[in-house]
Design a protein around this nucleic acid. Structure first.
Length: 299
DNA sequence: AACCCAGGCAACCGCCGTGCG
DNA sequence: ACGCACGGCGGTTGCCTGGGT
């Protein structure tokens, strides 16, 4: 029995991010265990999924919530309670984690304000903090506790008016969606992205040798056209991202070459010329999005 | 300048549902 | 019908950062 290397935990490095992005580009955002294994990332599938969904997904907005979004979150939370993923589906580009964090922060703030107000008006009154732990069984926040008027008045929702659909985390078991339509939609999306279907993938990997053509395929959402930037790739001078070959021994080779900003996986070259190569790689201009990259500080 | 504290956020954990053999 | 593997979700934790003292 082979002793497994210890599974990595904690913050992701930029190399890991790039590796993950690359393999998600190849295989789609579904089989996370498979991606975790095949990518050479010493992470669990869950960890990979989380990183993708919450941070690397090209459709993510990031940045501060707009007042509109804030209002919507409160409105939907009043309706659905802590169904964060469900709420997130109504906010294109926002993740359940983000919304959850926002909610916590918001509630903390309102609680403090309330407390302060109570202390001012009636210092002796007992704390009527409406925020219980979010794990509380009755987690539906009462409308009255919200800083907005009446959330049940059917306010016109911007999210139902055909805003651009971001492939936010999908839910197969969603009770409020037509499942067949959903599946058909997902398939279409994957086709558009150029993903291999899982059948294709399994066929592919069952071959004795990995077909290296797949490795140099164009990743649809990171090319220059989509990003409106000339440097939307790893090396900043063409539209192709050269991915590591399908191997589980990438990372160690990789680590050996950190110091000169060039990353090799086996005999395939995955190269970063300099920090500038990282930045334009993602189709967003929000600086916060790149914060983890640190522009070479970890190299 | 040093320290403290609160806020923000990324990531982990554990549970649950689903699909498949 | 059952058990297992996996993905998804909600809750929680812990680190980092910025502002205040």
């Amino acid at each position: 029995m082979v002793v497994q290397e210890e599974i990595r935990k904690g913050p992701w490095t930029e190399q890991e991010d790039l590796q993950l992005v690359c393999f998600v580009g190849l295989f789609g955002d579904r089989r996370w265990d498979f991606i975790a294994k095949v990518s050479g990332l010493n992470r669990t599938g869950k960890s990979c999924r989380l990183r993708w969904v919450n941070y690397l997904h090209p459709g993510l907005k990031r940045g501060k919530m707009t007042p509109q979004e804030e209002r919507l979150v409160l409105e939907l939370h009043a309706k659905w309670g802590n169904r964060w993923s469900r709420i997130a589906r109504k906010l294109p580009g926002r993740t359940d984690n983000e919304i959850k964090n926002y909610w916590r922060t918001h509630m903390r703030k309102t609680a403090q304000e309330k407390k302060r107000a109570n202390n001012i008006s009636s210092p002796s009154s007992s704390s009527s903090n409406s925020i219980k732990s979010s794990s509380s069984s009755s987690n539906i926040t009462t409308v009255e506790s919200l800083p907005f008027p009446d959330s049940t008045t059917g306010v016109e929702s911007f999210y139902d008016t055909g805003g651009h659909v971001v492939s936010a985390p999908k839910e197969k078991k969603s009770p409020d969606n037509d499942q067949d339509d959903q599946k058909a939609l997902e398939k279409e999306e994957e086709k558009e992205k150029g993903y291999y279907s899982m059948d294709d993938i399994w066929k592919e990997i069952s071959l004795p040798e990995v077909n290296n053509d797949i490795i140099n395929m164009k990743l649809p959402f990171y090319d220059a056209e989509n990003c409106g930037n000339d440097n939307n790739n790893f090396n900043g001078n063409n539209n192709l991202i050269s991915c590591p070959p399908l191997t589980t021994s990438c990372s160690s080779v990789w680590d050996d070459h950190h110091h000169d900003h060039k990353y090799y996986c086996s005999d395939s070259l995955w190269k970063m010329d300099d920090e500038a190569g990282y930045k334009p790689f993602f189709p967003t201009t929000n600086d916060q999005f790149f914060s983890c990259f640190g522009y070479g500080e970890n190299l």
